[in-house]
Write a protein that binds this DNA or RNA. Structure first.
Lengths: 338, 338
DNA sequence: CTTGTCGATGAAATCGCTTGCATAAAACTT
DNA sequence: AAGTTTTATGCAAGCGATTTCATCGACAAG
């Protein structure tokens, strides 16, 4: 056990505890010579700083809590990357929890981070029912920022314009002549961004006097498998869609598989448009037409704001809605003349 | 500020601090009635447990530290999932750090987790130069388990048989008649698993009297881009390979892109074999022939062992080498007769 | 030769919880 | 009824840092 504490280092160095503390964390406030003496003693004793004790006594934390549905979904894994980059750069530490799209787990994770007194919280979306708890935490000096969607002007968020970018994608599909368009949505009960994307779909369809057949709309978690199954169901309809808009690239990849398995081709027979532009999308065959979202940037901005807040003591105030633009690649083609 | 502490809860409930502590964390040791009184007081005061104070005083932590190169690499994101599932199930919390394949960052992360006194550490591979620090942490009662590779019998690990599974993949390629086979390896300086996979390649080539042209071997981080560039370089050789074995599915996907861009087809002109079988692999076009690794299981087993150790107080002892088997899908074909 | 300022250090009080030990009351034993 | 457990609770000493306040020279200013 290198159980050495600051006390023993102090004894060994022949100075007081306070001097050791200062020498180690604010060397400029201590005589050069003493600093050296202390460092030497610390090394000799294999002293390892105890961060728990440190932040308990200083009432400061250098940890950020992150709640994402799951790191298995690339879009969130990318958020995480942005966050981690910043944390490592500013030597903060990063704690994560997965909500699995379950509001209950989400709340549990929030509470756990509250108990841990993290310096700030980043959430990739939030169930509306849990938003009030964010206030509770804020009252305890734990600020939060929500990614992907705007949970209301009382909160910090770094969102994208889900509604508009989904509209753009839909309009593109319609421009290509598609009239029967399916939508593979995210599990919209639990996230505003999904509601927004879905309502963009409904709105655009209505604007173009296109029937918005509910059989063509499916809400599900963003996995390849769900995408495949959702699309398969659509293709089995008596009048199947000629295009599909997916709220997530994983759904889109799954959908493409379903199209292939039905003996059809993408994009010749069915057009597929995704959302997020995750790493794989540009490398897929064919390369995926999708909406590019600044996942890493969102994460980085959120972390930056929270860290700055922690260091300054001032509550952060970030409310941005970033642009997300359609990137046209190879999975959409003009509808075949009928 | 719901700054209420246990002390104030005690006052409000008319009992002592110790009783509150017990009522909250070990209700069975306290009279039913008192527990209720305490809970009520806690609720009334918006009391929130302070985990830092708790674990400082109890000298116990319920956090696991995880170090992976980056959550952007699916293989590690999957480890993470397995870990998180277990953590959430056992209500442990999970902290992560990214090493970016840099030994320096890796060590920094280890030290940070040491300072935080996590209950255990999980690492997705470890640079040999950092292995000794694992001992240091172990002496302080912080056990670790290494994933993917066996860092030596003095350590805990949950590895896969990199050498053998790479051999299997290579032999398969040779069975198909390929003679000029490239290898896109991981950055082998920093991880034993890469060395093992690479040496399997060399061994199999030698056993079959096939030339092992060093121009056909490239070591790089497992990104799509690196895969593409590595393969492009190979294809430009005067005598290009007819098959490529990639140490990671991301490299394989990138390699496939390079093949396409060179105007060739997979698998007709060039066979590609990956490693890991990440989520996307089965959904790719064509579906990727690869070596399936139990990424989630590895993560889960490691977390399980560490949590059990934390709860029992006994140091864990896990040394497993799991099987990884070749799964044949659509990216490998017989070599064309020359 | 005072007095004020500054730099370097120490003493001691926290921070918010856990827990070993002690005690009192309640519940069993014979 | 006296003795023995058991159960419920309180007291107070930590856990390992940080930080406020005080002290003590030294040194520049008046």
């Amino acid at each position: 056990m290198s159980r050495a504490t600051i006390k023993e280092v102090a004894a060994k160095a022949g100075v007081s505890q306070s001097t050791v503390s200062r020498a180690l964390s604010a060397p400029h406030r201590v005589k050069q010579e003493t600093v050296l003496k202390v460092r030497e003693a610390a090394k000799a004793l294999n002293y390892v700083y105890n961060a728990m004790a440190g932040s308990l006594s200083s009432r400061r934390s250098d940890a950020l809590g992150v709640i994402i549905p799951s790191s298995a979904y690339s879009a969130f894994a990318i958020n995480l990357m942005g966050i981690q980059d910043l944390c490592s750069e500013r030597s903060f530490s990063c704690r994560i929890a997965a909500s699995q799209f379950q509001p209950g787990k989400e709340l549990l994770a929030m509470k756990k981070f509250h108990e841990q007194r993290v310096a700030g919280l980043i959430m990739a979306g939030i169930d509306p029912s849990n938003a009030p708890y964010l206030q509770t935490m804020a009252e305890d000096g734990i600020p939060a920022v929500v990614l992907w969607e705007n949970p209301g002007e009382a909160f910090n968020y770094i969102a994208i314009d889900n509604y508009r970018s989904a509209r753009d994608a839909l309009k593109y599909l319609i421009t290509l002549g598609h009239e029967r368009i399916a939508m593979l949505s995210g599990p919209y009960a639990c996230a505003r961004r999904n509601v927004e994307r879905l309502s963009a779909y409904r709105a655009v369809m209505a604007e173009h006097d296109l029937p918005c057949d509910e059989a063509l709309v499916r809400a599900q978690p963003p996995t390849f498998l769900h995408g495949k199954e959702g699309m398969r169901a659509c293709l089995r309809l008596s009048s199947p869609p000629t295009a599909v808009f997916c709220a997530d690239d994983h759904l889109a990849v799954g959908a493409i598989r379903a199209v292939h398995e039905a003996g059809l081709r993408v994009p010749e027979d069915v057009s597929v448009c995704g959302f997020d532009d995750v790493d794989i999308s540009a490398y897929f065959n064919p390369p995926l037409t999708t909406v590019r979202t600044p996942g890493q940037l969102m994460g980085g901005m959120a972390a930056e704001a929270l860290i700055a807040a922690a260091e300054s003591g001032l509550p952060p105030r970030v409310q941005y809605t970033l642009d997300a633009e359609l990137v046209i690649r190879g999975t959409c083609a003009p509808a075949k003349a009928r």
